[in-house]
C-alpha cells in the first residue's frame, strides 16, 4: 500500500470542479432556509395556537429525522405521487438539484428557526418593558428592540448551522449530483485510493469551514460593536 501524492494533484482540479455546485447548494438553501426559518419563528412566537402548533410539529419532524431520509423522500418518494408529477412544481422535483435544494431548505429552516427563537427569547425582558413603558407597541418593540438584539444573540449558533449545512451538501452526492463529494467518490471507485482522495476532500471542506468561521466572526464583531466598552472594533 502506498500513498500516491501525484494522485492528489491529479484529482484536486477535478474535485474542485464540483465546488461551484457545492456553493450553489449551500447559498441557495441557506438563503431560502433562513427565510423559511423567519416565518417559522414568527409562527412559533406569535402566541396563536393555530400558528404555533403547526410550526412546532414541522420543526419536530424535520429535526427528528435524518437529513438523508428527507433527501430520499423528496428525490425518490415525491415523483411517485401523482399530484407532484402533475403539479406546477414538477420541474423542480424532477431534477436532482431541485430536490436537493428543497430537502436542504426544509431541513435547515427547521433548525435555524429554533436558533432564531432562542435569540428572541434571550432578549432581556427589562429592555422590552422599558419599551412598553415608553409607549412602544408590540410591532415597534419587535422591530426596533427584539430583532437587532436577537440577531446578535443568535449569530454564533447560526454560524454553526451554516457549517452543518455545508456538510449536508455532501449528501447531494447520494442522489447523483456531481458536487465535490460526488466527484471524489467517482474517482475513488476508479482508483481504489480512498486515503489520498478523501483526505484531500476533507481538507478542502475544512478550508471552506475555516473561511465561513472567519466571516461569521467578522459579522459578530460588527453586530456586537455596542458591547465593547472602549469603542474599538
Amino acid at each position: 500500500m502506498s500513498f500516491d501524492v501525484t494522485l492528489i494533484f491529479a484529482a484536486l482540479p477535478k474535485i474542485l470542479m464540483g465546488i461551484g455546485l457545492t456553493f450553489q447548494l449551500l447559498i441557495l438553501s441557506g438563503v431560502l432556509g433562513l427565510a423559511l426559518a423567519v416565518v417559522l419563528m414568527l409562527m412559533r412566537v406569535s402566541g396563536k395556537w393555530y400558528l404555533s402548533w403547526p410550526a412546532q410539529v414541522y420543526i419536530y419532524v424535520f429535526r427528528g429525522t435524518p437529513i438523508l431520509v428527507q433527501i430520499f423522500i423528496v428525490y425518490y418518494g415525491f415523483p411517485q405521487l401523482e399530484f407532484i408529477r402533475e403539479g406546477i412544481l414538477w420541474p423542480i422535483f424532477r431534477d436532482p438539484f431541485g430536490c436537493a435544494i428543497v430537502a436542504l431548505t426544509l431541513n435547515t429552516g427547521a433548525y435555524v428557526s429554533e436558533i432564531l427563537r432562542g435569540g428572541v427569547l434571550g432578549v432581556d425582558r427589562g429592555i422590552l418593558e422599558a419599551g412598553e413603558a415608553l409607549g412602544l407597541n408590540r410591532r415597534q418593540r419587535f422591530t426596533y428592540l427584539t430583532t437587532p438584539i436577537a440577531a446578535r444573540l443568535a449569530l454564533p449558533a447560526y454560524g454553526n448551522d451554516v457549517i452543518s449545512l455545508l456538510k449536508s451538501t455532501a449528501l447531494a452526492s447520494t442522489i447523483t449530483l456531481a458536487d465535490m463529494t460526488g466527484i471524489a467518490r467517482t474517482i475513488v471507485a476508479q482508483t481504489y485510493a480512498p486515503y489520498e482522495i478523501f483526505i484531500s476532500l476533507a481538507i478542502i471542506y475544512m478550508i471552506i469551514t475555516f473561511f465561513i468561521q472567519k466571516l461569521m466572526a467578522r459579522v459578530e464583531r460588527w453586530l456586537g460593536r455596542y458591547t465593547l466598552r472602549t469603542g474599538q472594533t
Binding site: 429592555i127 412602544l136 426596533y144 437587532p148 438584539i149 455596542y226 458591547t227
Partner: peptide, 30 residues
C-alpha cells in the same frame, strides 16, 4: 403610557443604541 414615565431598578437602556438614539426612539415612534 405616554403620560406615565417609568425608571427601572436595572436602568434597561437599549444596549444596541447610542444614548441619543435611546432618547429619541420613543419620541419618533410614539
Amino acid at each position: 403610557r405616554r403620560e406615565v414615565g417609568m425608571v427601572f431598578q436595572s436602568f434597561n437602556l437599549f444596549p444596541h443604541m447610542t444614548i441619543l438614539k435611546n432618547l429619541m426612539l420613543a419620541q419618533k415612534l410614539v
